[in-house]
Design a protein around this nucleic acid. Structure first.
Lengths: 317, 317
DNA sequence: CTGTTAGCGCATTCAT
DNA sequence: ATGAATGCGCTAACAG
């Protein structure tokens, strides 16, 4: 790879002039400008970004640590993020980590000058990070100054109101505690019931660490007394686990029981579509990148994102 | 962020000594070693990797340009690659690109000193790249010196032999030309038929650009005369598109027609499992990273990877 | 054993 | 308008 010295020598000018031409040529004689351009073309020269980074103290690299267990959701994130980052001339440095130790070690490796900022996505474990340049996205903890959260209470409330509007007044809820947003979900759930003058039935709600499969079995064992006709689950992965199980017990979906996902639904042919709250990855990414760009001016604050209610055609009426 | 100067000042030694201590302390007095370590700890100092990169002329960054349209396959790739790369102290710089122009522009941006090497994955369009530091993985073109290809002929042959062993002798094949490996697939298909003394029926094979949906309709319209009982498709995405369509025509899968995917199958609950050829992403990634690490010694050559035959439990007998 | 010096490639002064 | 010099943070070579 040729350097700025090669170009300056070939063009018969100084390094400074070459640099001037390449970065907003202003106050450079046309003749030497052309000479530089010619030399650049001949040598196929491109400035070394590492040297530029050392000087400017910024690399344009954004670390993204994916801590989600739901791998499908991850892809949507990455795709949207990369699109917006590259539009801002930034680079996406990818890392996966399932544990707190893993996240911290990845963070260490990325923040030694390599990355200007780091995004941590979907961590379900608390991690006490207090770094101006680290942004938590959809993470369990909210103490960190820079974080983007989903409004899970709002999602649960919307879900219930929708189900009730569909004549489903016995709504079961399976939402393992591990997801970290359990409290909020319960809040929204209860709120919707209250607003619709419906009683809260403790037996319809499963929020402890028992597997969703076990929870569902309990529900089905008591189906005759509980008589539930709707089921709220945490995400589309849970939904696809739960639906075959319901069908195995001769419960039709959505006929007998309407399953609702509180976070996204799969858009795959062959997979049954269900109503869900979906968070626009594109909007999220746009927001994040906007923050990254304007960081110098406005201080980053916490931010809460609300999802969209998506209803499959076959359910609409 | 503190620099080596801060550390040397605080420890009362020179920069060189600090550097020596941090990178394999050899020939350093214990006293000054401890002083340095203490200063490092106090200042929470970590060497700036960008400065190191400028000196060593290598960043440890590997660019990965994903050109695949099958987004699900991508995640598996990325996950495996990141795992192996981070084990080798390397960083994964992610890019998506759907067009040749997109790939080339991403390549430009990554090869200005930022990335030591670049992987291009799953490009279905020819791109004439002849760069020592660019590796093509599962790309349409094979002229490039550094490339990893899947053995599609082998996959097709294995698939046919399996299906024939299952008593399926009328094997339809839908494999759009856009995938770039069509020739090889046809080769393996024909080879298997020959070896089993079965005739080649041109009407069972669809390899032009017509959509797989149309191809399937043609097949179904002629089902009575063709009487096919197996269907080979390019990948699991195609499979999931095709299966509901077959069922809509009252063809049971795999009862009436066994669908076989030539590249991976979805392992999602609720999605019907089908027999498939699967390529181990982990093995691939291990191989790629091994290349990356030993590049100085052995010249990279082309390499062909064969997939594994995966048969769902319910089909095994 | 350790300090001084030089230089990686570049952009930005400050002179001219 | 342009060239020489400086320094970003670090390591390697050379002296002591």
């Amino acid at each position: 790879m040729s350097t700025i010295n090669d170009v300056s020598r070939l063009a018969g000018v100084s390094k400074a002039t070459v640099s001037r031409v390449l970065s907003g040529s202003r106050g450079v004689k046309e003749a030497s400008r052309l000479a530089v351009l010619k030399a650049v073309d001949e040598l196929n020269y491109r400035p070394n970004v590492i040297a530029q980074s050392l000087l400017s103290q910024s690399t344009g690299c954004i670390g993204v640590i994916c801590a989600q267990d739901n791998i499908n959701q991850t892809t949507a994130y990455l795709y949207a993020l990369e699109k917006h980052l590259s539009q801002s001339q930034k680079h996406l440095l990818l890392r996966f980590a399932n544990t707190k130790a893993g996240v911290m070690s990845a963070l260490e490796e990325l923040t030694c000058g390599l990355c200007d900022d780091v995004l941590i996505i979907g961590a379900r474990f608390p991690l006490n990070i207090n770094d101006e340049n680290v942004i938590l996205v959809d993470c369990a903890e909210s103490d960190t100054p820079n974080s983007i959260q989903f409004d899970h209470a709002f999602a649960a409330e919307t879900a219930c109101n929708f189900l009730i509007s569909q004549g489903r007044r016995q709504i079961a809820l399976i939402h393992p505690d591990a997801r970290g947003s359990t409290d909020q979900v319960l809040l929204g759930y209860k709120h919707a019931l209250e607003n619709n003058f419906l009683p809260f039935n403790r037996n319809l709600v499963f929020m402890d660490d028992t597997s969703s499969s076990v929870a569902l079995q309990v529900l089905l064992n008591n189906a005759t007394t509980l008589n539930f006709n709707a089921l709220l689950v945490a995400d589309e992965q849970e939904a696809q686990r739960v639906i075959p199980q319901l069908q195995a017990f001769n419960k039709s979906v959505p006929g007998d029981i309407m399953v609702f996902s509180l976070a996204g639904s799969l858009h795959l042919p062959g997979v049954p579509k269900i109503p869900a709250i979906e968070y626009s990855m594109d909007a999220m990414a746009a927001r994040i990148v906007a923050w990254l760009n304007e960081k110098t001016q406005s201080v980053l604050g916490s931010c809460v994102v609300r999802g969209d209610l998506i209803i499959p055609e076959m359910i609409k009426r």
